[in-house]
Design a protein around this nucleic acid. Structure first.
Lengths: 148, 148
DNA sequence: GGTGAAATATGTAATTG
DNA sequence: CAATTACATATTTCACC
């Protein structure tokens, strides 16, 4: 399998919690030598279990005061999912294609309501957007762990 | 402000892209000395602009084959947002309180449909859950950058 | 913000259980 | 064959300009 044993899961937990831990520090916490840890982490990266290491930014403090969940009901021929440029739009923090009534859901973050209004206009070219403001996020992110 | 100048934004871009870059490497890329970079990054952390550094995990490869967007319509007195334990449920990767018709939206990740069914039953104690499967995610995460 | 020296951390190769 | 030890290189962290 991709994640071999409990030590791998322990390393994944530690790196999800703090991606900047040194191999030395990791080695102390899992009771292995640094080279052994480096080798395990290298394998977890190669196999794609670890897809990357990212600093997370506080949206408010970075000047993004309005964040919204936007659900698209697309008109087939102009579907937003057929627009490759979406991936490059800096306002789009997430884009998920979903089953059911709607086409896809976006997490969009902008400085304020004026910019959100402009963004809604931009989406309207692809279909009918429906916006729900995110008021607060009790969980913005959670570490993936083995489920009992 | 929290982010002082273009060099801070450059550092944020680099650390969002790869949180494990050394101060030395960062210093080379922004043309500053390593101690100057370490000091700037320390300030960005202290002020809360950088909220953390996290390894991202591929859900499929970690044994989570079913991920869903669940929208809750809660019955007031038993609202899910009043349940502090939600934050500890390992299936809940995100939880957002939203404006509009519904109460909150969860991103939930489980090994398969059987576990999703059980999770829906768990949520039903708080209100009426509505589930949309995530079929694919063209954007799972995006770096925050200054908007023009 | 830069420099330089001491303390840590990393990468690699040879070696062991 | 994955983990350890040993050692050369690179990075971090001070004190000070």
């Amino acid at each position: 399998m991709n994640v071999k044993d409990p030590v791998d899961w322990h390393l994944l937990a530690l790196l999800q919690e703090d991606a900047r831990l040194s191999f030395n520090e990791l080695s102390r916490r899992v009771n292995l030598s640094a080279p052994a840890v480096a080798e395990r982490v290298r394998r977890l990266q190669e196999s794609g279990v670890i897809s990357g290491y990212h600093a997370h930014i506080d949206l408010e403090k970075a000047g993004r005061s309005a964040t919204a969940l936007m659900t698209m009901h697309c008109y087939g021929p102009t579907c937003l999912l057929k627009e490759p440029a979406v991936r490059t739009w800096p306002e789009v923090l997430q884009l998920h294609r979903v089953s059911g009534d709607s086409c896809c859901v976006l997490v969009v973050s902008v400085p304020g309501m004026a910019e959100l209004e402009h963004f809604i206009d931009r989406l309207a070219a692809y279909g009918r957007p429906s916006t729900a403001m995110i008021l607060s996020s009790p969980v913005t992110w959670r570490a993936v762990e083995p489920l009992t």
